[in-house]
């Protein structure tokens, strides 16, 4: 038990800044970022026994944190939409600038990517990690990561193009 806590203490002090860097870019505020990371870590904590070693555990946290983050964003959006449906437009009233809109579209497209491509984009492109570090955290080779990022970008392009047409 003690051992488990110690490992998590280590994980927190080692990975927290990096995790915050990536997740913040998805959810956009500090409170949610920490919630998401905490959630991901709690899940890992609970399933601790099924992990062979620390690197597998870390990979898992990196992966699941992205999932949680997008879930969080989706939930927020749904709430905002519900509010606006009730006429309380306060949240949405600020007219969105053009690039804000673009960012929004991109964000949606990323959220729709299959899981392993999504995490490649988040950790390989959006975070401050180097390619080497990101690949290590995700438990794959650097080449594999680049490959995935490349394919993810192809998908994004397709999705955005489709959006434009509509």
């Amino acid at each position: 038990m003690k051992d488990k806590d110690q490992q998590f203490q280590q994980l927190i002090s080692g990975e927290l800044p990096v995790l915050r860097g990536g997740i913040y870019r998805i959810v956009g505020n500090t409170a949610d970022t920490d919630d998401v990371i905490q959630d991901a870590m709690l899940r890992a904590y609970r399933q601790f026994d099924s992990f062979k070693n620390q690197s597998a555990l870390r990979t898992w946290i990196y992966r699941i944190a992205v999932n949680c983050a997008f879930d969080c964003v989706r939930q927020k959006k749904r709430q905002a939409k519900m509010l606006s449906d009730y006429g309380e437009n306060a949240l949405n009233e600020t007219t969105q600038a053009h690039d804000e809109e673009q960012l929004q579209a991109l964000e949606d497209a990323v959220a729709e990517l299959p899981e392993n491509y999504r995490e490649a984009i988040v950790w390989g492109c959006l975070s401050d990690l180097s390619g080497h570090d990101a690949a290590e955290k995700l438990g794959c080779s650097e080449n594999a990561l680049y490959q995935r990022v490349f394919q993810a970008k192809q998908m994004l392009k397709k999705a955005l193009m489709k959006e434009d047409e509509e």
């Binding site: 913040y24 500090t30 673009q102 960012l103 991109l106 964000e107």
Partner: peptide, 19 residues
């Protein structure tokens, strides 16, 4: 696309965020 991703990265930079 790369530019947009870059913009995203910049705009939501956690540099000034108070964690």
């Amino acid at each position: 696309l790369d530019k947009q991703l870059e913009a995203w990265k910049e705009q939501r930079s956690p540099k000034d965020a108070q964690f």
